[in-house]
């Protein structure tokens, strides 16, 4: 009992990945899941850690939903999607706590919050519930990679300017602009990077405006 008739052709793997990283990059274009993008990116390592966690949750949830979408009663599909995401988030949370405690101490709270990210559940609703396993996997991977990429870029900018280091390796003797390591700097970093992405997209022929913007229509 699937939700809607399966669309004619699923996009190819390459298209899906490029979509996730560039055209519909969750952070810079769709402006979803912004909370961790600012909170966790004081340095690249934390950004990568959370990015990988989100990637894992996205891929695993997409795959799970794609496999079980015939069994999910359509009227309770949102709660079931939420449940699936929550299970994977808890599993990844526990795994991180067990095998990467140093990183977990920094990003623990935000890993648990992954369950509230709109990006994941909206992806499940729009894609994984309608397409079979393989395209759903690529879509999840694309979105996850886009998110990881965004976190890495923001993290790099903030760590380089705020601390003078990259991945822990000190490049400058003093902190160039401590401001970027602070919460306010996080907001500014994203503002700059979003504007940059808009510019790039306009140069590549698009409209230059984020298609989401977390506007929710209001």
């Amino acid at each position: 009992m699937s939700v809607e008739p399966v669309p004619a052709a699923a996009p190819s793997a390459g298209e899906l990945i490029r979509n996730g990283i560039l055209t519909e990059n969750p952070v810079f274009r769709l402006a979803l899941s912004l909370c961790p993008a600012v909170a966790v990116t004081t340095n690249v390592t934390n950004g990568i850690a959370l990015g990988l966690a989100v990637l894992a949750v996205q891929v695993l949830s997409s795959v799970t939903v794609a496999l079980t979408r015939t069994r999910i009663h359509p009227r309770v599909r949102i709660p079931v999607y939420t449940l699936i995401i929550a299970v994977w988030v808890s599993a990844i949370d526990m795994t991180l706590a067990a095998f990467a405690p140093a990183v977990y101490a920094q990003v623990g709270l935000y890993v648990k919050l992954i369950v509230a990210f709109a990006i994941i559940i909206s992806r499940l609703e729009m894609f994984a519930s309608r397409y079979p396993l393989v395209p759903s996997f690529w879509d999840g991977l694309g979105m996850g990679l886009g998110f990881l990429f965004a976190l890495m870029v923001i993290g790099a900018l903030r760590e380089l300017l705020g601390n003078g280091s990259i991945l822990g390796f000190q490049l400058t003797p003093a902190k160039p602009l401590l401001f970027f390591a602070l919460p306010a700097g996080g907001f500014f970093s994203i503002a700059l990077l979003m504007a940059l992405f808009n510019r790039i997209e306009r140069m590549m022929g698009g409209t230059g405006a984020p298609s989401g913007g977390g506007s929710h229509g209001v």
Binding site: H73, V76, V80, V87, M94, T95, A97, A98, F99, P101
Partner: peptide, 25 residues
């Protein structure tokens, strides 16, 4: 029933993961 089934499965999976990882944590 559908929801209950999924919830029970979820709890079982989480319990298993917890058992497996708690020692290491």
């Amino acid at each position: 029933m559908n929801l209950t089934l999924f919830s029970a499965l979820a709890a079982a999976i989480l319990g298993g993961v917890w058992l497996a990882t708690e020692r290491y944590a």
